[in-house]
Amino acid sequence: MPEALLYLLTVATYLGLSAYFRPGGPACCGPTGWGRLLLFVPLALHLYLLDEVILPGAGLSLGFGTSFSAVAALTVLFYGLAAWHYPLAGMQSFVLMFGAFGVLLQAVMPGGRVLPDAGMPLFKVHMLAAFAAYGLFAVAALHAALIAIAEKHLHRPVPTRMVAGLPPLLTLEKLLFRMVELGFLILTLTLLSGIFFSESIYGRAFPLTHMTVFGIASWAIYAALLSGRRIYGWRGRTAIFWTLAGFVTLLLSYVGVKFVLEVLLGRA
């Protein structure tokens, strides 16, 4: 199958399923087992396209488009796995649209320079952990947005179908903090492992690059959120704000830097 047709098929499948599971639609908030399996169809195509671009031979090539696409694919993957055990059905349409957008960016901007130390297995594990943190925090950010919508409609006499079948807000918030805790652990390991590769990539053991600054800032935001939850019992809008702020900062740490360098400045 031609590559362009495969990209088109992947995007069309993502968007078709997104429309099928749209908020307020008949399949929105109660997908059955086969309904949960459907999102893995475009995801399998998505991962195949990523493998073709990111791993050309023994190297590791990551540009802005492929980086964002990898984050989107892992977001779909984490959501697909979590939806089997937790009440996340209201997010399905948005997650699928996010996946489609990632594939589109990869199709438009597939290139990227080969990273130093790309052949080292530990470096690939480091990069996989970094994108895993991105994907998990992306799901947490979407979940926080869902909680915000649920709170907005809490006192309305007839809630929208998107939130009508959701569990209590306290249950949703507990799930949110479980995701943040796991993401924080992965992010911590990513930052620590990154120190081992900084010297060979940048010539210094701990360079203060934009990537490093935003990465540490996002770690500090999530650390503050978890500490505030434990000490002060933060919840509701406070938890939502800190979750979204941490994700935006984390997004800027790598994908945002790649966007500025490749798209705005025209540098690889």
Rank of each mutant, 00 (worst) to 15 (best):
A220Q: 11
V158L: 14
V213Q: 08
T190P: 03
A107T: 10
M162E: 10
T75I: 02
Y134I: 04
K152C: 12
L122I: 05
A268R: 14
L191M: 06
G65I: 11
A268K: 12
L166H: 00
L88R: 05
L49V: 05
T13I: 13
E173G: 01
Q106R: 11
L244N: 12
F64Q: 01
G119N: 09
L47P: 01
G183A: 06
P121E: 06
F184V: 02
H85D: 14
M127E: 07
V76Q: 06
Y134H: 06
I240E: 00
F197W: 07
F241E: 15
F68Y: 04
F259Y: 05
L60I: 09
F259R: 02
L191V: 06
A132G: 05
G30D: 14
L9V: 13
A205L: 13
L189N: 08
L251M: 15
A12N: 12
P2E: 15
A217H: 10
T171M: 11
E181V: 13
L104P: 09
A118L: 07
L17S: 01
I186E: 05
P110E: 02
G135F: 00
P159C: 05
R235S: 15
F68L: 06
A217Q: 11
A205W: 12
H153Q: 09
A239I: 08
L39G: 03
V255K: 08
L172P: 01
A12S: 12
A140D: 06
R235W: 13
I186V: 10
F98R: 04
I231T: 13
P2L: 12
L142Y: 07
V139K: 00
P110N: 02
G90L: 11
E52N: 14
L264I: 09
L74D: 04
P42K: 03
D51W: 15
A164C: 11
Y254C: 03
I54P: 04
P168R: 07
L50E: 05
E151W: 15
V248E: 08
G256F: 02
I240T: 01
L47A: 07
G194H: 00
L175F: 14
L88F: 14
F40E: 06
M120I: 13
L15W: 14
L169F: 05
F177T: 03
